[in-house]
């Protein structure tokens, strides 16, 4: 299919540390199409940011090892000359980050930072670059863009800074935008504006977006497909509706039931007990088994002894769980998770 912008297969990232090898990302596969959004969901340390940094070629250091395949712009990025990957960054793939204040350089003006993003990839005059920056700032909803270009990041509000980041990421019309928790550091009202802006720009430019988040509300709002990550692995992958209506994996259930419900009879949240696993000593069995309430439903302690594969439930839906599809459906009914038929 020609409209697949990014295709990742069996991507793994390992870091050698003094305490042992950290398996930050373990054989993750996904693809994103032009104009569509893939949300990668998971808690801190689940490998969602690291996997995207690996795609961008931003995993550095001698102790890091990236394996697998990353097909992008007709090239295989894993193992490609870093200089070639650099040329793609900012031009064909771009990234925005969680905290726009720390992600913008405090000593350079907005204009300087955006003009630099233009001129690093294209030999254009200062005047032309400035004009393009102004147009782009205007496009992302920054009023009086010309004046703002002479201002420094600390003079702008949080929402405006993120708009600047988005403008900087999209100024060269990249095919792929990786948004790493783009709204986490923002006020709720500003969050909605930023998401709307991203959607609008996606429509206009046809950008493929990989959206990293832990906020399922954002997922429901933005995503076409979802990948749930836990302990460096993809534990469930599906189109967004299916994930909310027929979640297949106890960890996803946990995520869904830890969302505060506006109309719930009980005000108590239902958190997932325990903490994420250490990425150095991953459990031998299912990575989620130590926290899973349902591991006894599977015979022979299989959950603790054998790693489940990412198995297809439907053509588009896959999950990593030893329970049978019927057992999962029972639990969903019992706990009133998803869409109960």
């Amino acid at each position: 299919m020609s409209d697949v912008v990014l295709s990742v297969r069996d991507l793994s990232v390992e870091f050698a540390t003094e305490d042992g090898v950290v398996h930050a990302v373990d054989k993750v596969s996904y693809s994103v199409k032009r104009g569509e959004t893939l949300a990668i969901v998971g808690e801190s340390g689940s490998g969602k940011s690291v996997s995207s940094l690996a795609v961008m070629g931003l995993i550095r250091g001698n102790n890091a090892k990236v394996t697998g395949e990353v097909h992008f712009a007709g090239q295989e990025l894993v193992g490609l000359d870093p200089e070639e990957v650099r040329k793609l960054r900012g031009l064909q793939m771009a990234m925005i980050f969680q905290d726009p204040l720390s992600a913008l350089h405090p000593f350079y003006t907005i204009g300087q930072q955006l003009v630099e993003a233009v001129q690093v990839h294209e030999k254009v005059s200062d005047d032309e670059a400035n004009a393009r920056v102004e147009t782009m700032l205007d496009r992302v909803g920054i009023a009086s863009a010309k004046q703002r270009m002479d201002e420094y990041p600390h003079q702008l509000s949080g929402g405006m800074r993120q708009r600047v980041m988005i403008a900087m990421a999209l100024i060269n019309s990249p095919d792929l935008l990786i948004a790493d928790e783009p709204t986490t550091a923002l006020d709720v009202t500003v969050q909605a504006q930023i998401l709307e802006l991203l959607r609008d720009l996606q429509k206009e430019f046809g950008t493929a977006i990989v959206l990293i988040t832990h906020d399922l509300g954002v997922v429901a709002d933005m995503a076409d497909d979802v990948m749930v990550m836990y302990g460096g692995q993809a534990v469930e992958q599906s189109p967004v509706r299916e994930l909310f209506y027929q979640p297949q994996m106890p960890y996803t259930w946990g995520l869904l039931s830890s969302i505060p419900q506006m109309h719930a009879s009980s005000l108590k949240l239902d958190p997932i007990p325990g903490t994420p696993p250490s990425l150095i000593n991953l459990p031998k069995g299912c990575v989620f088994a130590p926290r899973c309430t349902y591991k006894d439903k599977v015979a022979d302690g299989l959950c603790l002894s054998e790693r489940p594969n990412l198995l297809a439930v439907t053509d588009t839906h896959a999950a990593r769980c030893h329970m049978s599809v019927e057992q999962r459906a029972d639990v969903r009914r019992e706990r009133n998770i998803g869409k109960v038929n």
Partner: peptide, 14 residues
């Protein structure tokens, strides 16, 4: 710092 990551994400030479 985060802004160094941003600079690299922009595709600036090291």
């Amino acid at each position: 710092e985060d802004y160094i990551r941003t600079a690299r994400a922009k595709g600036l030479p090291e």
